[in-house]
Structures are given as C-alpha cells and as structure tokens.
Write a protein that binds this DNA or RNA. Structure first.
Lengths: 231, 231
DNA sequence: TAGATTGTTAATCGATTAACAATC
DNA sequence: TAGATTGTTAATCGATTAACAATC
C-alpha cells in the first residue's frame, strides 16, 4: 500500500538542502512567493540543474514558467529532513565543545532536542549548562533506555569516545553525532556521523600550503614587525 | 626546475589522510615499523586499494611484499598536509564555540596556531581565553595585515559573519575556516571551508527519520514513563 | 503565441573498486 | 621459489552538468 520507495538521497544533496532552506526563509520574510532554481543557484553559487535535482530528490516539485512556491519548498525541506518531529538527544561530555553545542538553540528547529548532558566529572554533575542538567555518566545507559532517547552526541576526549559510544548503543540510541576524533566501532544499524575537526582542518591546511607555494607572501621584514607587535 | 606538478588531491582523500596519520602514530608507539594497506583498511573500515591510492596521492610509496614504513608514512602525511610549517590564525567571535576552539591544543600539531581572538563585546576584550588574548574587533584588519596572519576562523553569529569575512580578507588572510551557518562571499583566491553544523545535522536527521520509518521503536507506554522520569 | 522554467533523459566527470602485473 | 603486497591500469559506480522536451 505504501507507494513511497525508500530511495536514498546522496550526502551532498542532504547537505545542500539546509542552504536552500535558509535562503528561502529569507525570501519568505521578504514575501517573495515564488523562486526559480536559477535564483537559488545564483545566491548559493550552485548549478541551477543541481538545485532542481536536489529539490526533486526531496520530493518537491515546481511549475514550469512559474518556478517553485517558496513556502512549499521551505515546508517540503523541513518535512523531508525530518525537522517536523523533534528527536531527543543526550550529549555526553560537558567540556567546552559540549557546552557550546548545548547553547545552540536552533538545533530544536532542526529536529534535535538535547534533553540532558552527561559527564564523568563529579564537579560538573548536578550543575546546569545553558539550561540543561548535567548528569552522572554512569546513569547514561539506563536513562537512555528508559527515556527512549534516539540520538547521542559525543563530545568527550578521544580516548573515552568508544566507551561512551558503547554505553549509548547499549541504551538503545539509533544515531550518534561524534565530535571526538576517532572512528567508532558500532553495530551496523547505528547511524554515525563524524564531525572530526582535524580532518576538516587537514584539508584546509593542505590547500593553504598549495596556495602559498603557488603564490607566496610575507616578506621577512614584515615578519620582524610582527614579532615586535605581539610581544 | 620544479618537477612537482601541482596535481590537486580530492577532498575525500584529504579528509582520510588524518585518519591514517592517527592510526599509524598509534602503531609507532607500539613500535610496529611496517604496515600494509590491508591493515589500515581493516582498522578504519576502508578498501585497501583506496588507502593505497590515497597514500600515493600524498606522494608516499611503499615496497611490495613489505608494506609501508610506518614512520615514513606519518612523516609523509604531515609534510603533505602542511603540518610541518605552522600558520598563524586569528579567531573571530569569542563565544562558546570560539572558546572551545581556542582550547584545542592539538591544532598546533596540525599546522594551525591561533595567536589571538577578537570580539565585539567590550566585556570580553582584554581578557584571556585558554591563554589567548581577546582583542577588539576593530583592530582585526590592521593587525592581520601587520602580522601577516594567513588564516581566519569565524565563530560569530550568522548575521555578522560576512562583515568579519570582509575584514579578514581586507587584512590579507588567505584562508577562512567558517563556523557560521552562512555562505560567505569572498574573492576567488580565498580558500573557504564551511563547518556548518546545521548541514551536518540535517543529514543525520534525515537518515534517522528514514531508519525510524523502516524500523520504528518506542511504544507509547514508554513515552509516558519518560515524561515521568525527567520532570 | 512566445518565452521562461520545470522535468527528464543523456553525457561527462570524478571517485571508488576491481583486476592484474611488477617486485621484493 | 613462492607468496604477499605494492603499483598501475581498467571497470564500475555515482554525482554533476548539459541538452532538450514538456508545460504553464
């Protein structure tokens, strides 16, 4: 009876959809009711055909000659990305990165509600960060199970990440957003997204090196000035 | 005279190299002097041929039957990624995310040295975060210019990001690591890397939604228990 | 009607994977 | 020598881009 085929959508497409969403929300505020792929492409520096393909993948259609109805696209993207029904998450590791994430209020508009944080450090347990309770790490699995929390966010140091992942999986979590610079070993059916800043940085670093090689800068005299300035 | 052709290396490859680096450093500590692509692939769940191709792209070669010399690979990756010569960076936006990044000490091992932070907020200016001075935002361009800083890290709110990018570019920065959820408009020769958490989250969220549709969980009775537990 | 824009199919491009020869 | 592993070329796969028909 279900006509919808579970065609999977490519990662690049999934990451572009929020960009469209963001732009179209702006257009909505300016009360622009229709938009073409060309408009979107120009704003975001993307090929119009690619935009059209992405929207099609998200199940959104427009009308020849008219374009897409702005509100319909916004709504369609939200629905497609699962932003309508918010999932609860536990954040593990209330360090500086964890605390920063606890402060991202817009996550809730993107289907993610962090309901509690966990930390090993007794000094942090019992406190609140950005309005969220910090609980003891050893309660993680049990609470995840009882509360049927679906998402785990890992912001602990690398060495602890695997143990935390195990605890989350034991607690029945279905997806893990991993900020620790390690590859986690988890059962196949668990969705893992790695947010490894060192990997991103590596790519930036390499490109900068290439660019500097091709077109160096910074004469030595300037270097000397620099040292004087900072110290 | 320069035999090296500036063949560009793909983004996926660049992001895998740090993974190899991390694993091989571990092997080094265990004094394992040689390693095969199969070993690496098994550890990181990657195709051995892909590993070999990646290493080749980084200009690293091994020996048939023996494998790769662990130390040589570690060194080769560091050299290739530009981790040997550290570039200085300014971080703009000393909020929670900015502060978190200021605390990442390992960045220096990856070619990135954050030398100062900037913020609009007078209450933050003059203070130190993780040992780095917070300076007034209006000094950004001038200081970047005089110190020949090459990298800018943007951790300000979305609305301010473009202005900050402009200031960084005016200051002569060559690369921008952008954590604000906006697409920046910068001259062509500037390298921009977007670290848009909402885009990453979107992809996670969509996949979770798909997975839940295929295999739902969480009976209503459990939901009720949950509410009782938290409040 | 004419023209702009979507929808859709085909072509291109690039990355991954497979096959196999070279080599220690 | 035999066998394991690299190096390298070919095949596959998937995403992007181009071409063009359909349509309002």
């Amino acid at each position: 009876m279900n006509t919808e085929l579970p065609k999977t959508v490519s990662e690049p497409t999934l990451k572009r959809l929020p960009l469209y969403h963001h732009f179209l929300k702006e257009l909505l505020q300016r009360e622009q009711e229709a938009v073409s792929c060309t408009d979107i492409g120009e704003e975001l520096n993307l090929d119009p055909t690619q935009v059209r393909k992405d929207l099609e993948a998200a199940g959104i259609s427009g009308r020849p000659r008219i374009g897409y109805a702005t509100a319909a696209v916004v709504d369609g993207i939200e629905r497609f990305l699962g932003w309508k029904k918010v999932s609860e998450a536990f954040l593990v590791g209330a360090g500086s990165m964890g605390s920063a994430l606890l402060g991202y209020r817009k996550f809730e508009e993107c289907g993610l509600k962090i309901v509690a944080a966990f930390d090993r450090d007794p000094a942090k347990v019992g406190r609140k960060i950005h309005g969220k309770h910090v609980l003891a790490l050893d309660k993680l699995t049990d609470l995840a199970q009882r509360m049927h929390v679906l998402i785990g966010i890992i912001t602990v140091p690398a060495v602890e990440a695997q143990a935390v992942a195990d605890a989350l999986v034991a607690g029945g979590v279905r997806a893990i957003w991993n900020f620790a610079p390690v590859r986690l070993r988890v059962p196949e059916h668990i969705i893992v997204h790695n947010e490894d800043l060192y990997c991103s940085l590596a790519s930036l670093s390499q490109k900068l090196g290439q660019a500097l090689e091709a077109n160096p800068a910074e004469p030595v005299t300037a270097r000397r000035l620099r040292t004087a300035t900072l110290s």
